[in-house]
Simulated scan of single mutants.
Amino acid sequence: MEDSVQQKIIDFLQVGDLVVWILMVFSVVALTIVLLKLWQFSSLRAESLKTSQLALDDWRNGAREESLQKLDEKRPIDALVAYSMRSVLEAKSNVELIREEVERRAMNQLSQFRSFLRPLEIIATLSPLLGLLGTVLGMITAFQQMEGAGSQVDPSVLSGGIWQALLTTAVGLAVAIPVVTLQSWLERKVERIAHNMNDAVTQVFTSKEAKELVEKAAKEMLHAA
């Protein structure tokens, strides 16, 4: 049973020629990237807002130290929230400068989450085009065989050449469709992470606690001047 399945796979790859081999490599690369991204999102719990929301509740209630203790800074959103809170508490910089630094850190984090999504897009774009190229080359070969046979054309030979040519288009679409779907899903996850980051950090700076601390720091700087 296993031998017959293996033989069918070998025959399938031989019929598809080089184009099918390239598409098989594309599919392996795409699967590797998707698994890597899923592991990245899962290990960092990048979309999680549970601990950051608890910390923000304490922050709004004036419990500064408690809010920082509830944050898990291995998570990207929690790390940004923690940095924002500490910067506001220390009040060593202008609020606008703090927000710019938070934005810079957020962009770096999002850049890491978007890494390898571009290769997925390239695979999704090239796969059907490669499949179509294989079909065109196969059709050319089939018609060359028909021309060489002259008046002794065997319809079965022609139909066999056509289905072999169409095989590459089918494989190209079979690779491209799931890759496009998974790429869109991963990009949507990155968009949600970006939204959650922006929402959580904004809550730090718009809270009553932050405004009071900033005003206090501004007065101290004025008296010092």
Score class of each variant (00 low, 15 high):
Val95Glu: 15
Val95Asp: 06
Val95Arg: 14
Val95Asn: 07
Glu96Lys: 09
Glu96Thr: 12
Leu97Cys: 05
Leu97Met: 14
Leu97Tyr: 09
Ile98Gln: 06
Ile98Arg: 02
Ile98Ser: 04
Ile98Trp: 04
Ile98Thr: 15
Arg99Met: 12
Arg99Phe: 03
Arg99Leu: 07
Arg99Cys: 02
Glu100Met: 08
Glu100Arg: 09
Glu100Asp: 14
Glu101Ala: 11
Glu101Arg: 12
Val102Phe: 02
Val102Tyr: 02
Val102Glu: 03
Val102Asp: 03
Glu103Gln: 15
Glu103Tyr: 10
Glu103Phe: 08
Arg104Phe: 11
Arg104Lys: 13
Arg104Val: 08
Arg104Asn: 10
Arg104Asp: 09
Arg104Ala: 13
Arg105Cys: 06
Arg105Gln: 14
Arg105Ser: 09
Arg105Ala: 07
Ala106Tyr: 01
Ala106Val: 00
Met107Val: 14
Met107Gln: 14
Met107Ser: 14
Met107Thr: 14
Asn108Pro: 00
Asn108Ala: 11
Asn108Gln: 10
Asn108Lys: 07
Gln109Pro: 00
Gln109Met: 11
Gln109Ala: 11
Gln109Glu: 15
Leu110Asn: 06
Leu110Val: 11
Leu110Ser: 07
Ser111Pro: 00
Ser111Met: 12
Ser111Gly: 15
Ser111Tyr: 08
Gln112Pro: 00
Gln112Ala: 14
Gln112Phe: 11
Gln112Met: 12
Gln112Ile: 09
Gln112Leu: 13
Gln112Arg: 14
Gln112Val: 11
Gln112Trp: 08
Phe113His: 04
Phe113Leu: 15
Phe113Thr: 03
Phe113Glu: 01
Phe113Asp: 03
Phe113Ala: 06
Phe113Cys: 03
Arg114Pro: 00
Arg114Tyr: 04
Arg114Thr: 05
Ser115Cys: 04
Ser115Leu: 11
Ser115Ala: 13
Ser115Met: 11
Ser115Phe: 09
Ser115Trp: 06
Phe116Thr: 04
Phe116Leu: 09
Phe116Glu: 00
Leu117Met: 11
Leu117Cys: 04
Leu117Thr: 09
Leu117Gln: 05
Arg118Cys: 01
Arg118Thr: 13
Arg118Glu: 07
Arg118Gln: 09
Pro119Val: 07
Pro119Cys: 05
Leu120Pro: 01
Leu120Trp: 03
Leu120Ser: 03
Leu120Tyr: 03
Leu120Asp: 02
Leu120Ala: 03
Glu121Thr: 12
Glu121Gly: 15
Glu121Trp: 00
Ile122Ala: 10
Ile122Met: 13
Ile122Pro: 02
Ile122Cys: 02
Ile122Arg: 01
Ile123Cys: 02
Ile123Asp: 01
Ala124Tyr: 01
Ala124Met: 05
Ala124Ser: 12
Ala124Val: 05
Thr125Pro: 00
Thr125Asn: 13
Leu126Cys: 10
Leu126Asp: 01
Ser127Phe: 01
Ser127Thr: 03
Ser127Asp: 04
